[in-house]
């Protein structure tokens, strides 16, 4: 409880530093631009990163489950899943919270806070994998679905069902 009160008190510092740390995972040249506080349609990465950091942080102050946490993390992970990041790089921004916690929190709260961050990290791994799976599915099925479905409806490729094309029957 004490931790949450403390976090609430230092919320703005946390969010600001976390946002900065997240943006700094981009190349320095890009980070300086993406970190600008500009119109959300002119700088979607910056705006969404900012919003998500805020949302997630607010969320951990309340009662949360891994499921709701994962949902809150979605916007930012969804972006990082299609950018030139490796899996560890993509979720690394969560661990930045530990460093920030180290700076901002009393040592006695460190362990508890680290556990909280671990929860966020686990949720972000889950979400990252889901996003990657979606990408692979889109890769595998996009053209087949768009084009073959039309052919199928027309009975031109009647021998192949969508399941065959998606390969789900074989697996």
């Amino acid at each position: 409880m004490k931790l949450k009160q403390e976090l609430k008190k230092k919320k703005h510092d946390f969010i600001k530093k976390w946002f900065r740390a997240t943006i700094d995972t981009y190349s320095p040249d890009a980070a300086r631009i993406l970190g600008k506080d500009s119109n959300r349609f002119d700088n979607p990465i910056g705006a969404i990163t900012n919003e998500t950091c805020e949302d997630v942080f607010n969320h951990i102050l309340e009662d949360f489950t891994q499921v709701t946490l994962e949902k809150k993390l979605d916007p930012i992970i969804r972006i990082r899943a299609v950018q030139a990041f490796s899996a560890s790089e993509a979720v690394s921004f969560v661990y930045a919270l530990k460093r920030i916690g180290n700076d901002l929190l009393d040592e006695s709260l460190g362990r508890e806070f680290d556990r909280l961050v671990d929860n966020i990290a686990l949720a972000s791994f889950n979400r990252f994998m889901k996003c990657r799976e979606e990408i692979f599915l889109l890769k595998a099925t996009e053209s087949k679905r768009r084009i073959h479905r039309a052919f199928e409806r027309a009975g031109l490729v009647a021998e192949l069902s969508e399941e065959d094309l998606l390969g789900s029957k074989k697996s």
Binding site: R40, F41, I45, I48, I79, V82, I135, L138
Partner: peptide, 21 residues
């Protein structure tokens, strides 16, 4: 194409962001 899906989805972000709004 399909193989450059990450590029396409990243490039689609600004558009998607407005649609989502």
């Amino acid at each position: 194409a399909g193989e450059n899906m990450e590029l396409r989805m990243a490039g689609a972000l600004p558009r998607a962001n407005a649609v989502k709004y």
